[in-house]
């Protein structure tokens, strides 16, 4: 497949892997030799190199995020070239590597968001208290990126143009088998009620963390739960309202122009909100470190309010798409 977007995706993932490999070798040196009290030339060199490495990583993670968007958008636009594919689902179903690529990319998005927040926090402590933790975390992220590069490579190189794939209609249907089918089988009433409860909980947790300036983990847990519930709700009910079709459960078709790209307005705030609430849990434990306590006290409320802002944006968009929908699901609701 010599499609330009595919070439770009492969190129970007290889570049990001290389950047992280470079950063990882540096991380080893940091873990071994870092000593902030020392004024030795080695220490000075290490300190200067942190500027390079964190710049590399900021770019790497930014490009990682953009490549997630490009990956989904590209899967959408490739769907025209395969028999049976109507949207990204069909393209992801082409071979066993499609879905893992997507999931790894999403995981990397969250990991990079957390890392960037930690990096920002650490750079505000005059003795860089988190530096070892930060670079150890980076070593954990490396296998994710390398795996993503390999899996994505397989996904794109093993695309058989003549293969007949199955699309959302079969995967996300209550009659089929597997997780996707079970999710699609959840009744709208149940999923909407759960969504509302999770919304209330996550907003409450966010307000609490923002006002008290501690216990960020609470927001992280609630945020993660709200994320999962939101995805389930999109598949099991919100998508139905957007398509105005009682049995079409696809989470990707909402990204299409035909539905006003409403999917992007749902997913982007949801992902940002989740990333922010996850990082809240990684920020608040450092409150007790002298050099960080003030920064944590300033940052945690900002992160929490931002997370809430994006969550509320997501909930409002979801509510709006249900509200304007001409689909009435009398028999399902009552």
């Amino acid at each position: 497949m010599l499609n330009p977007a595919i070439l770009v995706l492969l190129m970007v993932s290889i570049i990001i892997s290389t950047m992280l490999l470079v950063a990882a070798t540096f991380a080893f040196r940091i873990l071994r030799h870092w000593d902030i009290q020392s004024g030795s030339e080695l220490q000075l060199r290490l300190e200067r190199r942190t500027y390079l490495v964190s710049t590399l990583l900021i770019w790497a993670f930014l490009f990682e995020f953009l490549s997630l968007l490009l990956f989904i958008y590209n899967a959408e636009s490739l769907s025209g070239q395969f028999v049976g594919a109507m949207c990204a689902t069909g393209v992801l179903n082409l071979n066993p590597w499609g879905w893992p690529t997507l999931f790894l990319k999403i995981a990397m998005f969250f990991v990079s968001a957390i890392w960037l927040v930690l990096n920002y926090l650490d750079n505000r402590g005059y003795d860089y208290p988190l530096i070892r933790f930060k670079y150890a975390l980076l070593l954990l992220a490396l296998p994710l990126v390398v795996a993503e590069t390999i899996v994505q490579w397989l996904h794109f190189t093993e695309m058989e143009p003549n293969l007949i794939t199955s699309c959302c209609g079969t995967l996300f249907s209550a009659d089929a088998q597997g997780i996707s089918a079970e999710v699609s089988g959840i009744t709208p009433a149940k999923s909407i009620v759960t969504l509302a409860i999770s919304a209330i909980l996550v907003i409450a947790a966010g307000v609490w963390v923002a006002l008290r300036g501690r216990s960020g983990w609470l927001l992280s847990i609630m945020g993660a739960a709200a994320f999962v519930i939101a995805l389930l709700a999109i598949i099991s009910s919100i998508s139905l309202y957007i398509y105005e079709h009682p049995h079409h459960h696809c989470p990707f078709c909402i990204l299409k122009q035909g539905h006003g790209y409403v999917g992007y307005f749902l997913y982007i705030p949801l992902f940002l909100a989740t990333a922010l609430s996850l990082s809240a849990g990684f920020v608040s434990p450092w409150r007790k470190i002298v050099s960080l306590s003030q920064t944590v006290a300033e940052m945690l409320p900002v992160i929490s309010w931002l997370a809430l802002f994006f969550f509320i944006q997501f909930y409002l968009t979801a509510a709006w798409s249900v509200w304007v929908s001409r689909l009435t699901m009398m028999e399902v609701w009552w």
Partner: peptide, 13 residues
């Protein structure tokens, strides 16, 4: 849009 993004990745990156 896809094309713009691709071009961006090919040059700015």
């Amino acid at each position: 849009g896809l094309q713009l993004a691709t071009l961006f990745f090919f040059t700015v990156l």
